[in-house]
């Protein structure tokens, strides 16, 4: 733990997460804790590699992770969003195509896309992180 914390400090990371089965170690150096970003913690191995990249910038603002609720193929809606895209209002970011049905994934309001975890046409499982949005 100590060496991991020292590593984080020396590397200038705000967060270092080990998440294996029941064991979850979550280290942060930010004075203000990330609020909703912790909702991601321990959730998906696929998402964790990406979320640690975004954590330094996401640390200042609350962010929400939108996850797939259906097993299917994700299709990014046009115009496609990328990390940094600012949304003025609620809009469809993508849809998950499952058994021929388009299940929309909406931003739920204005905000800034802080991470895009999936590529267009990628198969996704239930609960897989798709986007992170800062309010």
């Amino acid at each position: 733990m100590r060496s991991a914390a020292q590593f984080c400090a020396s590397a200038g990371l705000t967060r270092f997460r080990i998440d294996e089965e029941e064991l979850a170690i979550d280290v942060r150096r930010s004075p203000r804790p990330v609020s909703t970003a912790t909702a991601v913690a321990g959730d998906d191995a696929l998402g964790s590699a990406h979320s640690s990249n975004g954590a330094a910038t996401a640390a200042e603002r609350p962010s929400t992770v939108l996850k797939a609720e259906f097993v299917g193929i994700v299709r990014l809606s046009r115009p496609t969003v990328a990390e940094g895209t600012v949304l003025g209002e609620d809009r469809e970011l993508a849809y998950v195509e499952s058994l021929g049905i388009r299940n929309p994934v909406r931003s739920g309001g204005p905000g800034r896309i802080s991470a895009v975890y999936v590529n267009d046409g990628e198969p996704v499982g239930y609960g897989q992180p798709l986007f992170a949005i800062e309010a």
């Binding site: 259906f70 097993v71 058994l99 239930y126």
Partner: peptide, 23 residues
């Protein structure tokens, strides 16, 4: 290969026919 098909309760995962067929 593996797909998560739902949360713990069986009705939403191992009995979730649409997600299983889609997988």
């Amino acid at each position: 290969r593996a797909f998560c098909v739902g949360p713990g309760p069986v009705a939403r995962s191992y009995l979730n026919i649409p997600n299983i067929i889609s997988a």
